[in-house]
Design a binder for these strands. Structure first.
Length: 486
RNA sequence: GAGCGUGUAGCUCAGUCGGUAGAGCACCUGCCUUUUAAGCAGGAAGUCCUGGGUUCGAUUCCCAGCACGCUCACCA
């Protein structure tokens, strides 16, 4: 390692000695690799000069000529250096250019005997010297730890990883377009919150020096967005980072992206339709088809999605009738799942447990799971059909929970009551939110969507870490000694 | 938090039933003007994750730790 870096540093010095700046300021690109391939016929016929830039990926010297591949945003293109074209001084200088260096080339386009489109370089320029050795050309960088920690190397060498993040950007762009077209206003609400709410998750805590107060990083945007409905904004959404101080696994990251939207005068049925339509729209925008294959399973996103009530689902997958069974019956089922203490557990908590364990894994085809127990849904309206349940649903596909939605509770006194129940579990009440409801919030449907999870589905990624550029990691051992003596 | 797995050259990986380690690519030195996982010849490169223990001797066995992965638990 040390010697490899030293060798390259020596080349860097040699370049400077020959009056070449290894880190110049600017290069004007006229074509990307993909442009050149697309416009090949014309470029070759007119012998037009192209200027392309990128990272040198391979180098195959043959005495007085040299082939290589260069990679830019759009892909790879072969480049060909010849002593006849460059003169011996410029040609010999190639010895000081390493794989991994960023270079700019100028030249004409031709096809080699084997038919590969290639730039015949008439002049070239070093744009940035790389002094660290690159991963292997054939196998690339595989080590997951290095890929996550040094995502820049992962992106530079694994084109499919780039593709994931490009598609992620497209997903979010399409989401915005879909909502903007329907009259939604994009807003920004506080990340730093004095009281956290809108979920039951554990928050991250931080501290503001000037105000001498502790603050929470938001776990959800819900309570602020609903205040905007009180203010008359009618349709709002926010795409934001939320933070939850809890375990990590393939579908949970402590820092994740959520879409939350609220629509006045709508209920949760409207949210189901909106969600279905959005998923169909996204699938078509991203893949051109409503059929999505994820980890080997193919499903069709086309509306309408299956609607399955919790009582039905539990009956079907766990063989328990929660409409007639006693708390003790539920307790017995929960005991089978895990041997923790269920004696004091609330009915809603036990039903959640049964859903997690027996129902979720079965929700592979697109499904709305609806009518959750009221105890675990304090921000939702009670069902018009059955007062034991809330008008709430969660959309599922491939067994992954993709969101959460309700007919939003807008009765201030009932909301206060629900908050007071939660306070028994040590949760602070957001009185300002209740005050806002006292001014009157229109009836509304609300929907939260896990953006990272959508991206997982649309990119066939197994883990949420694969769709987050810099996933959270424990610190690596001290790097400073790698730099000692440099 | 628990169980299992992984950690060896810059990268991808072998290997040592306990005797201080190998391959391919990358790197260095030669030769080669349409090659392409270029080729040929020669060379250099390792704290075998860390710390203890057993042993004449540990990269290998044992214990503890660290990092990462998978599964489970936690998570409205």
């Amino acid at each position: 390692m040390r010697t490899l870096i030293q060798q390259r540093l020596a080349k860097l010095e040699e370049l400077r000695k020959r009056g070449i700046e290894p880190y110049p300021y600017r290069f004007v690109q006229t074509h990307h690799a993909a442009d050149i391939k697309a416009a090949y016929e014309n470029l070759a016929a007119t012998e037009a000069k192209v200027k392309a830039a990128g990272r040198l990926m391979s180098k195959r010297p043959h005495g007085k000529s040299c082939f290589g591949h260069m990679r830019d945003l759009t892909g790879d293109i072969q480049i060909y250096f010849k002593v006849d074209d460059l003169g011996s001084e410029r040609f010999d200088l190639l010895d000081l250019i390493d794989i991994g260096d960023t270079i700019g080339v100028e030249g004409t386009v031709f096809k080699t005997r084997t038919g590969e489109i290639t730039i015949r370089v008439s002049d070239y320029e070093l744009l940035a010297k790389a002094i660290r050795p690159m991963p292997e050309k054939w196998h690339g960088l595989k080590d997951r730890e290095t890929r996550y920690r040094q995502r820049y190397v992962d992106l530079a060498f694994n084109m499919d990883v780039r593709e994931i993040f490009i598609r992620r950007a497209k997903t979010i762009r399409a989401m915005r377009k879909f909502l903007d077209e329907r009259g939604f206003i994009e807003v920004e609400t506080p990340v730093l919150q004095p009281i956290y709410g809108g979920g039951n998750a554990e928050p991250f805590t931080t501290y503001h020096k000037a105000l001498d107060m502790s603050l929470y990083l938001r776990i959800a945007d819900e309570l602020y967005l609903k205040r905007l409905l009180v203010g008359g904004l009618e349709r709002v959404y926010e795409i934001s980072k939320d933070f939850r101080n809890e375990g990590m696994d393939r579908t949970h990251s402590p820092e994740f992206t959520q879409l939350e939207l609220y629509q006045a005068y709508a209920d949760y049925f409207d949210m189901m339709e909106l969600f279905e339509q959005m998923m169909e729209y996204l699938a078509l925008e991203l893949t051109g088809s409503t059929e999505i294959t994820y980890q080997g399973t193919k499903i069709d996103m086309r509306p309408p999605w299956r609607r399955l009530s919790i009582p039905e689902a539990v009956k079907r997958f766990a063989d328990v009738d929660i409409e007639t069974c006693t708390d003790d019956d539920l307790r017995r089922v929960c005991m089978k799942i895990s041997d923790q203490d269920w004696q004091a557990a609330k009915r809603g908590t036990m039903i959640d447990e049964i859903i997690d364990h027996f129902v979720e894994p079965n929700l592979v085809e697109p499904t709305f799971l609806l009518d959750f127990p009221t105890e675990t849904s304090p921000l939702a309206k009670v069902s018009r059909r059955d007062a034991r349940f809330a008008e709430r649903f969660e959309p599922y596909a491939f067994g992954i929970e993709l969101g959460n939605a309700f007919s939003e509770l807008n009765d201030p006194m009932r909301q206060l009551q629900n908050f007071r129940m939660q306070r028994e579990d040590g949760k602070e009440i957001d009185y300002d939110f209740v005050r806002a409801l006292q001014y009157g919030m229109p009836p509304a449907g609300g929907l939260g969507v896990g953006v990272d999870r959508l991206v997982m589905i649309f990119t066939n990624s197994h883990s949420i870490r694969d769709v987050i550029l810099f996933p959270q990691m424990r610190p690596e051992p001290d790097l400073s000694e790698e730099f000692d003596g440099l």
